[in-house]
Amino acid sequence: MSLYDWFIAPFTEFVFMQRALLGATLLSISACPVGVFLMLRRMSLTGDAMAHALLPGAAVGFLLYGLEIVPMTLGGLFAGIIVALCAGAVSRMTIQKEDASMAAFYLISLAFGVLIVSLRGSNVDLMHVLFGSVLALNDEALGLIGGISFATLAALTLFWRALVAECLDPLFLRSVSRLGPPVHFVFLGLVVLNLVGGFQALGTLLSVGLMMVPAAAARFWTIRVLPMCLLAVGFGIASCVSGLLMSYHASLPSGPAIILSAGAIYIVSIFTGPRGLFATRLQSKSHRTA
């Protein structure tokens, strides 16, 4: 088998592979920078919690209309925003930190979602909701993912300076602008939006993987936020290409293959990145004078 057959042919010969590649690439472009900011705000696990929080909304859509993308997406978006707002409000108005309030709300949400799916669906349906199907993206799904990517990039461009300031020195931002709290909620909205976008392709559980794993890998390579976001996007796209090819050639499920590819990049980054283990722990014994 030639290199062309390995790497190019699957994408030129099969429309479903082209769609999967387009959807996954669009998702990487928008979800990975959001993941970088989640990580820098020490909210990496919040993405995971939010992904669970989408479930009851998506499940209600499924209960009413079956496996239809629009109702399930709108339901997921609605549930995600409600959980984000509730968790954010509890953490800002009470003594409880956001990690605890988020955990409480997402667990309630997850239990509720599984309950709703089980009222109507089979285990196969539940697996579809939880793990998605990137190889079955239709026009509606691609349009939705494209729209989410565009909205995310526009919001990141608009609020970039405020997002950086809020992560680096939140009190300083509050002293020069009233944007602090609104930016926090806009950001949580972007997290929900991207998880909803990823949900059709990768399911509620794995969509957060494409958001966080490339971002975590990029942290080992640079000390600036913009290059970190660009690198995360690159890692995300590489993971999608690699995962889809593995899925095609080895008949593996595509979602886990994509996330495992990102995981491989992460593990390599831990060791070989300029801020990784080799560079920081195993440096030569010689040292500079100053």
Binding site: V164, C167, L168, P170, F172
Partner: peptide, 8 residues
Amino acid sequence: ELDRTFPA
């Protein structure tokens, strides 16, 4: 109040 680990 400043996050010194922030990549800046």
